[in-house]
């Protein structure tokens, strides 16, 4: 993770307000992950159920097809793997310790 300079009390908005809309993307929650979703492109039928259910908008879709998982923000909750239709099972949760680094896309 890149080093950020933390601001002093005179430099930040009062009341704990966040003035910039949509800045949650700057918060790299991928480091919270214990299990990483691994998607099998050959099995995926692009039903987008995982995209609907993902609470962190981490299923990346282009032109109606799943193209990857945003590992910078995926917290590894496993909902995508659970909701992937049982006859498909395109997503497995794999222990994070078996990977090197956080990863970005799958």
């Amino acid at each position: 993770m890149k080093e950020k300079k933390e601001k002093g009390w005179k430099e930040i908005p009062i009341g704990g307000l966040i003035l910039e809309a949509g800045n949650a993307t700057q918060y790299e929650t991928g480091s919270w992950r214990t299990f990483r979703p691994v998607r099998d492109e050959d099995r995926c039928i692009h039903c987008l159920i995982c995209w609907i259910f993902c609470p962190d908008s981490s299923i990346l879709v282009e032109d109606g097809k799943v193209v990857g998982i945003d590992l910078t923000h995926c917290k590894g909750c496993g909902i995508c793997a659970r909701e992937c239709p049982s006859r498909v099972q395109a997503i497995r949760m794999v222990e994070e310790t078996t990977f090197e680094g956080l990863g970005t896309w799958d």
Partner: peptide, 10 residues
Amino acid sequence: QDYYTEHKRQ
């Protein structure tokens, strides 16, 4: 931990 103290100081 990174900003709560600053908000209390305000």
